[in-house]
Design a protein around this nucleic acid. Structure first.
Length: 106
DNA sequence: AACATGACATAAG
DNA sequence: CCTTATGCCATGT
């Protein structure tokens, strides 16, 4: 059986998020196949190993908040990584209006 | 199988 | 802005 696991589907989608853009948990879940996997997306991200190629930092909450909030250690690191890619922030939250990844239908 | 937990989302007060 | 409550689903015990 070569069915992909839920985690693989999720990692697959996260890997599609382009440079300089972010996606929400719910968005990742929906693209992975089930919109209700938002929490599982978080679980999957938590399970990522350090030297993984997965761009975990491009995943944020729907309101633009980063992991743990901008005041947390991880949140500040994530904010830094995203700003390096040119993602704009407003009061500690990602400017979703301009930087959320919109998958374009070619 | 039951229960608790979690890097979420939405609604309500 | 805050807390509760509910829905959701994969994992760990």
């Amino acid at each position: 059986m070569s069915e992909k696991t839920t985690f693989e589907l999720i990692y697959d989608v996260i890997g599609q998020v382009p440079y300089g853009r972010v996606a929400t948990y719910g968005q990742i879940a929906a693209l992975a196949g089930n919109k209700r996997w938002a929490r599982v997306v978080g679980y999957a991200l938590h399970a990522i190993s350090r030297d993984s190629d997965i761009p975990w930092y491009r995943v944020v909450k729907k309101n633009g908040e980063v992991f743990g909030g901008v005041e947390s250690l991880g949140g500040r690191y994530q904010t830094e990584l995203l700003q390096e890619e040119g993602v704009g922030f407003v009061d500690g939250y990602v400017d979703m209006e301009h930087y959320q990844w919109k998958k374009v239908a070619f």
